[in-house]
């Protein structure tokens, strides 16, 4: 007899105690959710609501008042600097997403499909994570002696005589920010895709081959569609991290490339809470749209 049947039987007895007891028997398992729900309400839902609320507060140079106004919002969309930062963030995000996929997919394809030994697969995936054994800051700053005017790349290219003058666009430009981000985040693309690819049953590929399909058709019709959930998960990882980025941009652009994240940092630094909240709301909305769109691409619930 299941729990609910027990409860039903007690209810039928009609005792005064029975309904109360039955309620807890039926719904007691929801108590398991309580710690999580409390935590999320306190530290996610309330702060989100506060952020939206604060974004309408009145900001003066030295203080912030809770009088509602849309001034901060108007400033954001009217200002070339701030609206430009939104567009730049979107552009850099799309570029980084494109390159992480371009570099990550073939790598994942190799690990997931052409390495059949599970141990070697794991070793290769771990190897992808080795850069993470150093701190984020070192990984980012290490690009400076690499890309700088007198950095490794320029020296080597000059030594072998390909260029006579150092290439200056390598560092403290949007390019250096993109190079840095792609290097840091590509592994988040490789992992989920390699995982999905490794799960594809070898017999499916044999069956397709047996039915006369070429290697390219097999990739297009079987392997790629089946790896798509991995691509989407990887893209979500990369998107969430790149959209909220500020450190790489600050370190590799010499503060010339300002992303939404950098604006939040500076505004909070100068105690402009209302304006920082506006940028925060916009960033949250952008991320929500991006994730929803990506999830529309595949039905993750069905595929995973």
């Amino acid at each position: 007899m299941s729990l609910s049947e027990t409860a039903g039987a007690k209810m039928a007895d009609g005792g005064t105690e029975a309904p109360k007891q039955a309620f807890w028997v039926r719904n007691g398992h929801f108590l398991l959710l309580a710690p999580g729900v409390v935590w999320m309400i306190l530290f996610l839902v309330i702060p989100l609501i506060m952020m939206v609320y604060v974004s309408f507060w009145t900001q003066t140079t030295f203080a912030i008042k809770s009088d509602l106004t849309t001034k901060s919002w108007v400033t954001f969309f009217a200002s070339e600097t701030y609206f430009g930062a939104l567009l730049r963030t979107l552009r850099i995000w799309l570029t980084v997403l494109f390159f992480t996929l371009l570099i990550g997919y073939p790598t994942a394809l190799f690990i997931g499909q052409f390495v059949r030994n599970k141990t070697v697969q794991t070793i290769l995936l771990v190897a992808c994570v080795i850069p993470f054994w150093t701190s984020f800051l070192i990984r980012v700053l290490a690009w400076r002696p690499m890309l700088g005017k007198e950095g490794a790349i320029n020296i080597v290219l000059q030594k072998i005589g390909i260029i006579s003058e150092p290439i200056e666009v390598l560092l403290f430009t949007e390019l250096s920010v993109i190079i840095g981000m792609v290097q840091i985040y590509v592994v988040f693309m490789v992992g989920p895709i390699a995982f999905m690819l490794a799960r594809i049953d070898e017999s499916l590929i044999e069956a397709a081959r047996d039915l006369g399909a070429s290697a390219w058709t097999i990739f297009r019709k079987i392997i790629f569609p089946l790896s798509l959930p991995g691509v989407v998960v990887g893209a979500i990882f990369v998107s969430v991290m790149v959209l909220g980025e500020f450190a790489t941009a600050a370190a590799l652009s010499g503060r010339k490339v300002n992303l939404l994240g950098n604006i939040i940092v500076t505004q909070v630094g100068s105690l402009k809470w209302a304006f920082a909240a506006v940028v925060g709301v916009i960033l949250t909305v952008v991320m929500a749209i991006v994730i929803t769109t990506l999830l529309r691409v595949v039905n993750l619930r069905r595929e995973l």
Binding site: D201, E206, G212
Partner: peptide
């Protein structure tokens, strides 16, 4: 395989999910 004129029905069906 595909040029042999043979068909192979696999044990686990190997249907494309």
């Amino acid at each position: 395989t595909y040029r042999r004129g043979l068909g192979f029905v696999q044990q686990n069906y190997a249907l494309f999910p």
